[in-house]
Design a protein around this nucleic acid. Structure first.
Lengths: 227, 227
DNA sequence: CTCCGGCGTCAGAGTTCCGTCAAGGACGAC
DNA sequence: GTCGTCCTTGACGGAACTCTGACGCCGGAG
């Protein structure tokens, strides 16, 4: 769940934001002044910050600097001031976006979504998509299988089949489901394909292909991958 | 130097932007319609895009989608429309910011700076600028390849292809992804291009081009660069 | 016991995919 | 214009992959 930190000293604005955000399943923290805000940010590590520049205890830009000292969390600034200088100052201090009050809630939420989306790690980035077994390792992102320090070469079909099984580690995958995912939706009965390609996977990955430990056959039903 | 792509069909706006940006030492490309814009984006790989939604040939949101299909470059939208729906649509399509016309140049530039800053890689991040192999060295920042103490001459396309592969060292890069990143989003099936240019890269960089050790073919799937 | 269905194995045929070469065209430099 | 560089395109032989049928094994049912 995405966590939002709202910083504003006007209770009605905070209330409106909190209600709208919670309705959209965001987790919301709120602070009424800069000091509390910085503390909360450090404690809760929000995914995005909504900051009103007009705070009672400190300049909003100072809050931005305080945050930017240690985090790159997206900061969305709210302000009643339309002056161009204010915007430039806030943006150059490290804000990500600047919305002038009064603002439309739809727009604010859209900008919030944009800010959060941007901060997301690249899909297929460094996320750990590696599955380990005693004998081999499957890296789903790099499309690599390593066994005894060597890369194992898989054909597209073999890889596709392995992928479906590994993504369902421990679960039984029916023959029909495998056929449809690997060969396409119009397949479903060609179980001989499965037999051939399961055999090849086992030959390449199992220690003893005749007595598989990872690619288990469930007779009449399907196959199961076990670590 | 930061490269900006300006997309707008109003010459006076383009002129104003180009003058201001160049004065601040940005490198600027300009397009006056969506098709040219997508082409230019693919060819020039801008660091940030400024996009007017009102284009003669296609909907601005389509341009956003066209870009987002293959790149995460920051997109700053300009529009005369103040309607909230328009903003939400553009932002949800993948835009990073939305500025309504008439806009202050200072503010626009500040938002541009914010967008570029955000996109910067984390300082001290795991960005490898130089990649070494036993036989040659690729310097991604300097755009240079060195082999046996000599710089290897690569054509723009060869370099581009090499860059994509090296940035994904060890990972399989699909043919479609390579084509889209190097030749542009409208490509995806012209695998003969890949065959030709992979051969050229191998001829220039592999010890034995017929038995490549670094530029590995995964038949039916794509290519992989290995140190 | 025999029969039978489901599974594993193997090898060959057919098809797709890849590396290579060469020719043609676009473009800019001189 | 002429040259040189680079990109595109087509063609072809060979390699890799998928499909297909045949066969044997095994366990359960009759």
């Amino acid at each position: 769940m995405t966590r939002v930190l709202v910083i504003d000293d006007e209770p009605q604005i905070v209330r409106a934001l909190v209600i709208n955000l919670k309705a959209r399943h965001y987790e919301v923290d709120a602070a009424h002044d800069g000091a509390t805000a910085l503390q909360l940010a450090a404690a809760r590590h929000p995914d995005v910050v909504v900051l009103d520049l007009g705070l009672p205890d400190m300049d909003g830009v100072e809050v931005i600097r305080g945050l930017r000292g240690w985090t790159r969390v997206p900061i969305l600034v709210l302000s009643a001031r339309h002056s161009s200088d204010e915007k430039v100052e806030a943006l150059d201090a490290g804000a990500d976006d600047y919305v002038t009050k009064p603002f439309g809630m739809d727009e604010l939420l859209a900008r919030l979504r944009a800010a959060v989306r941007r901060a997301e790690p690249v899909p297929g980035g460094e996320d750990e998509v590696v599955v380990d077994t005693a004998e081999f390792t499957v890296d789903l992102a790099a499309k690599k299988v390593n066994r005894d320090g060597r890369d194992v070469r898989l054909t597209p079909t073999e890889w596709h089949l392995l992928e479906v099984l590994v993504r369902n580690t421990g679960r039984l995958v029916s023959q029909k489901q495998l056929l449809q995912e690997v060969w396409g939706p119009s397949y479903g009965t060609e179980t001989n394909y499965l037999r051939v390609y399961m055999a090849q996977l086992r030959r390449k990955l199992e220690v003893d292909p005749a007595h598989p430990r990872h690619f288990i056959t469930e007779p009449g039903m399907g196959y199961r991958f076990e670590k």
